[in-house]
């Protein structure tokens, strides 16, 4: 059942990315281009997503445990703001501003068959493996 939920959530997430224009790196770069031809599309995507989770989480997290039997709520550990958080977010942002891809949209674009998307994704996987050690 957890697998079916995983598949359905992945599908809905991919649908959302495509509807919101995030599978087009030009639209994402346009959002970051505040000094040029700014494109506000991502503001609407973020507002739609945040409103849904912000309100929805309030109800979902009132429960003792998730709906699926045997599951518990997995929250990231409470940690202070540290150097890896700041450095990692900055490095991620630099990469995002170069290519206009964050992890979700890059993966969601894979089947279009653009070689560059594959190169980005493989490099991202290598970067992830480097970050895990």
């Amino acid at each position: 059942m957890a697998r079916l939920i995983g598949l359905l959530c992945g599908l809905l997430f991919g649908i959302g990315l495509a509807l919101g224009g995030m599978t087009n790196p030009r639209i994402v770069l346009g959002f970051l281009d505040v000094a040029g031809a700014w494109n506000p599309t991502l503001v609407f995507v973020l507002c739609g997503a945040l409103a849904t989770t912000f309100i929805g989480y309030r109800f979902a997290l009132k429960r003792e445990a998730p709906v699926l039997a045997g599951e518990r709520f997995h929250f990231p550990p409470r940690k202070p703001i540290d150097a890896p958080l700041l450095a990692g977010a900055a490095l991620f942002g630099i990469g995002w501003g170069i290519a206009g891809y964050c992890p979700g949209p890059a993966a969601a674009s894979l089947l279009a068959g653009h070689f560059g998307t594959l190169v980005f994704t493989i490099a991202m996987l290598i970067g992830m493996a480097m970050g895990r050690r």
Partner: peptide, 28 residues
């Protein structure tokens, strides 16, 4: 097709991919 073309060339995409992968991993 909602999937757009990559916006930069291959070397830039490779560098960006490394940064995105490494950065998101260490910042969780």
């Amino acid at each position: 097709n909602p999937i757009g073309l990559p916006a930069v060339n291959l070397p830039e995409l490779a560098v960006a991919g490394l940064l995105v992968g490494y950065g998101t991993t260490i910042s969780h």
